[in-house]
Amino acid sequence: MEQVLANGLYLGAQYALIALGLTLIFSLMNVLNFAHGQMYVFGGFVTYTVVAQLGLPFIVGLILSGIVLGVMGALIEKYLFRPVIARSTREESTMLLAAGIAFFLDAVILLLFGEKQRGIPKIIDGVLNWDYRIIMPYDRILIGVLAIAAICIFIMYMQYSKTGRAMRALAQDRVAAELMGVDVKYYSMIGFALGAMLAGIVGGLLVSITGINLGMGGPASIKAFMMIMIGGAGIISGAIAGGFILGMMESVGLLVFAAYGDITYLMIFVSLIIFLAIRPHGLMGKPWG
């Protein structure tokens, strides 16, 4: 049982980090970023290129992943989302754009990095073995700790920095924030960049454990959508809660349903639909966020 909990925590930390980026983008711009999973895969490939092909240390790869994705996010917001949001009659039109960007990133990844599964060598060797109750490789623990550290830094940044305060104001009420002198355009761009950067960092973290391949983007997006639905779309604490809950459910489900074949995800989906039918705005979301 301890093993299951430890696995759940490890999964949950990664998931929460993915969901944070998605929920940040959603809360600022009301855009459902379909390309989030592809951004995450892209981040993983950047780290792979830096570490495995250029031979630089892992931490450089991780930082570069964040920077590359951050710049990409800023450009996407400035030149694609902003004009479309300004001109379309229905907000949902941005979904087509987001899906288009997802296809585009898929194509770019295919051309730049190929379709093969890629991984980098282990960062540290050895396995933690606590009385055969918890067995976990050290590198997984390191990645889990790094993910939790990233979440903490992100929360502190949102809570105490000027940029963070501006973005929280923007998420609460766009018009009011603008009236209070917040540069809405600038902070939307920063927010999108930050969300994309988080996706890139998760990609960089995961490439050292599970590796990365082209097909991982879509499923990652769906998981991230589920997490922000559990917690409530656009709510930062909700995204973190959603991530950990999904991680736990996955880890417990794999144990409980092992005898019945591969139905863990079916069960998670069905229980999610039932949960949302009872509480349509998630654990912490605003009604009709």
């Binding site: 959603f26 009301n30 459902l32 979904m95 769906i222 959508f225 589920m226 922000i228 639905m229 779309a233 989906f269 999610l272 639909i273 039932i274 949302l276 039918a277 349509p280 705005h281 998630g282 009709w288 966020g289």
Partner: peptide, 17 residues
């Protein structure tokens, strides 16, 4: 049940469907 959801929530639930 799910048509009580709106906006992005409905979109995501149908995606899960």
């Amino acid at each position: 049940p799910i048509l009580r959801l709106r906006g992005v929530y409905f979109a995501m639930v149908t995606l899960v469907l």
